[in-house]
Design a protein around this nucleic acid. Sequence first.
DNA 1: TGACAATAGTTGTTTAAACGACTATTGTTA
DNA 2: TAACAATAGTCGTTTAAACAACTATTGTCA
Lengths: 183, 183
Amino acid sequence: MERKPKPKHDLPDTLDARVFVSLMRTADALSRGAEALLKPFNLSGTQYNVLRILRGAGEQGLACREVGCKLISRDPDITRLLDRMESRGLIARAREKEDRRVVKTRITAEGMSLLHDLDEPVRELHRRQMQHLTAKQLKQLSILLDRAREPFEASEPSNRFCRGPIDQNYFTKRSRNSKGETT
Amino acid sequence: MERKPKPKHDLPDTLDARVFVSLMRTADALSRGAEALLKPFNLSGTQYNVLRILRGAGEQGLACREVGCKLISRDPDITRLLDRMESRGLIARAREKEDRRVVKTRITAEGMSLLHDLDEPVRELHRRQMQHLTAKQLKQLSILLDRAREPFEASEPSNRFCRGPIDQNYFTKRSRNSKGETT
DNA sequence: TGACAATAGTTGTTTAAACGACTATTGTTA
DNA sequence: TAACAATAGTCGTTTAAACAACTATTGTCA
């Protein structure tokens, strides 16, 4: 077995870069688990996130762009994302009377039911994903992650319209269904 | 201004879930910056990552599947990912003589040149992305992130074939070019 | 009040990701 | 050594993401 030759023409492995890669790898690993959980329900992470956002919004629903800017990973085409969910009966859309430019989106009973079925599995998934970390570590991780992205949240132009805290959000990453374990 | 109604039918905001969401949001924010940097070069994060991997592999190149399992986010269709890069002249492929099943992929001079042009901007980007964190915080974050995904790395079936440490990897996330600031 | 800008969302089109079925080559073993 | 399994990669097809141009409605103000 030959040992790998020193990668002399590669970038020096700075701490910055290591954190970046760690972040990407970890996010990918955990999001894969979530996508796998959602896959049997034919939901992508983004779609699940939309349902969570709409459940949080309640009766009055949300305008298209409001949904968009609450999503974790910005989707440049909310319209068709919602189209697909509407055709599945998970959400409903209606043009507003006052301002006929906006289309309010609401979660349907069917959407609520699906979301409800997922509540426990999702909670359970995260418990499993984090069980090997202590509460102290989790807290620290959460703080550091929040702090890491802090400067970028503010500067994001798409966030200017997102007033209020984002708490109904859930997750999203590579919104197409991931491969997962097929049989 | 009405204050948002208590989201009573939403999941309780457990620490697990908060970490998960923080992780996704932070990964998304930072990867967006990286995608924006690569976009003028018409490179996706995945493609950039492939170049880094191949530079690290050196003269002997790598088999298709080896590239695949070193990537951060698994791509179910390495063939066409490499197809596109080959047609751009960034990589070259050649079927092996001994085992005619495998196709070795190598980075071309043009690929090396492109990668070289990106070295400094990428390093600089990460410096900017992390500059508001202390070295201690970065170290802690790196450790916690590694620890967080540890149990999943081992269990990934696609990793069984990936012998050796993965150090040439770079990043990858939502491999299509992100929207970024268009003029 | 008429022209123009700003806002909200939709639609067209290109490209790529996801999934699965497929071919070619090599390894195994009865 | 013939049959079969395992491995490496390719290809066909569906769906969605990304980008840009577009329509409709409302706000502004000269």
